[in-house]
Design a protein around this nucleic acid. Sequence first.
DNA 1: AGGTTATGAATGAAAG
DNA 2: CTTTCATTCATAACCT
Lengths: 181, 181
Amino acid sequence: MDEGMSGFCIRAASVGGNSSSTGTKCGRWNPTAEQVKLLTDLFRSGLRTPSTDQIQKISTQLSFYGKIESKNVFYWFQNHKARERQKRRKVSFDEKDIMIRRDSAKISYTQNFAEVNHVSEPERVIETLQLFPLNSFGEAESEKQKLRVHANDQYRGNTMFSCTMGEQMEHPPLDLRLSFA
Amino acid sequence: MDEGMSGFCIRAASVGGNSSSTGTKCGRWNPTAEQVKLLTDLFRSGLRTPSTDQIQKISTQLSFYGKIESKNVFYWFQNHKARERQKRRKVSFDEKDIMIRRDSAKISYTQNFAEVNHVSEPERVIETLQLFPLNSFGEAESEKQKLRVHANDQYRGNTMFSCTMGEQMEHPPLDLRLSFA
DNA sequence: AGGTTATGAATGAAAG
DNA sequence: CTTTCATTCATAACCT
């Protein structure tokens, strides 16, 4: 019934007067060239997952160039690292694919040429890339129910949470009654 | 899934057919709006670490709205809890940053101010749980153990990253020295 | 303008 | 519990 909105955003308003660099419209962080350069340099220096303290310091420094929050720094590294990895993975995938097609008899998936990463960065962090197992495919049903949720139920009290969905009562209310000794 | 940081988005999911936006074939759980609402309500009510029994009940209830497994519920609470905390942490950092920024005219963020770490006590939200009939929330116990000081913030390593901007040196170089005991 | 790309943000899943 | 990884969503910036 309320399918109308596919995705809307609420912004923390009062962002007027931003103009960090080129008169951005607020909404989401848009790094300046200087900020990107600094972040990239740090990344190239080997920084991958800065600690909270480091994020804080970086954020503080970058705030000199424009509005920025520590979460932006956090996300930036997260994304940059992930995307580099992703890129590399794709490349190696292609190469392996080709190789497999080449000699489709021996199947020696050695990626001795793994350093063929022309990923626009002579970085120095070794990212071990994995070979994908070719034997376990139809595994969709197995449902590896590990669920180590019962890590610490000890005194798990007799709490009762209940919750209803308000308007649309198309189902019984959710009652979570726990039995107690 | 609300409380965006600077701008958050709410994605509406289909009530009847799930398959929100991109993929019905996705390998990972994609909660519907109703499922999220229920989970959020429970969270808001103070539920943090549901027991196995609770997880089971919640999962069963939520399955009314779409495919779901127990582990999804488990993970949801784990993630939601962790991220609320993480977010709070980052925000407080930013606020601190702003305060410092205001106070100092020239600002030379040496890593000294990192010691200003009595960031109040942002944790622990619920105290309104008491309006529930029973007071021995399994969670209340867990919360108590959280009173311990965040002693494990970052002992990641004593690496030192530094970076300068090259041409325009209008700011102190960025030195990220981690405090070593 | 409308499609495409780059990337900020979010989050499910899992590892540690 | 904390931290990291992967995948996806959303949108500013960029084409054509």
